[in-house]
Amino acid sequence: MNLGKDQLRELYRLMVAVRQLDRSAVSWQRQGLIPGYAPELGQEAAQVGSGYVVDTTRDFVFPTYREMGVARAMGVDMVEYMSTHKATWHGGLYNPAETRLAPIQAVVAGSVLHAVGWAHGARLNGPADDGTYPVAMTYFGDGASSQGDIHEAMNFAAVMKAPVVFFVQNNGWAISVPTERQVAGGSVAARAAGYGMESVQVDGDDVVAVVEATSRAFAHAREGNGPVLVEAMTYRRGPHSTSDDPGRYRTLDEERNDAGEDPVERFRRQLEADGVADAAFFAEALEAAKAEEEQVRAGVEALGSRPGTEMFDYVFQESTPALDEQARQWREESEHV
């Protein structure tokens, strides 16, 4: 993908919007607006860059609980996305079928096999007129790469030549445990060879490099050549979640040293040096991000609780007498509250 000036600017706008919203969400938690949040601070390039490549008319994306930047790049409504962090609904209120983003997944490595199944299903549907296939992209981290389901997913995808892009954000930390305690040798991408799968390791803090690597991976999968693994090397600058205290396992000096240059600042510097954007553009992008943040915050604040009947409504497509009876009893007894 050869990125034009407009695309580069769009990527920057997205990264700034995501940065603003991510920081804001942490504040919301501190202010008591939401009970918890998993910041993606420092992973803006990896998330925006990969999400930017998705064709939402045909592809499908399987996130974890830390892919706000991907969701934003795909155009998912941010209030509906944030609703999961407001404890409104597990998985979020956005429509997964329309947005092409699977519900937020709280099980580490839980949805990676789903991507393989989805992609195999897409393959069974046959190629489009131009001979290409829709692609499933699934996200996981260096910690999740220790899970057995990752092995099963990679093996299944490779054996079945399923059009899957495994997008690994190697952010250095699984809560308190560093990558070297998860991945001997430090590279998840290196494992792909064992599955007979193509892989690439990319500077995950370089948004252009991420876009290019992800685009190549998509092209490979689209053409029916099987899965690809992209490992974006990045750094989790924030805590694992708003309940976490990184001071217990890493020092501020280590953070400064290991994090490298901030990906948003780095991209800004590059755009400026290349003459793609100027100070006025950056200021305008920041203003737009702040306006969006205000709007999303207002939307999150306005989110009410879902009616309790929904606990029962979505368990099955075809409810059961026992469940109906429990719902009836709940209604009857909660009326007295």
Binding site: F60, F62, P96, A102, V112, L113, H114, A115, V116, G117, W118, A119, H120, G121, A122, N125, A136, G148, D149, E152, A153, N155, F156
Partner: peptide
């Protein structure tokens, strides 16, 4: 691999 079989079923259902 049974987890693979069932996990794959989820994705197939979504498709």
């Amino acid at each position: 691999a049974e987890s693979g079989i069932l996990g794959m079923s989820v994705g197939l259902a979504m498709a």
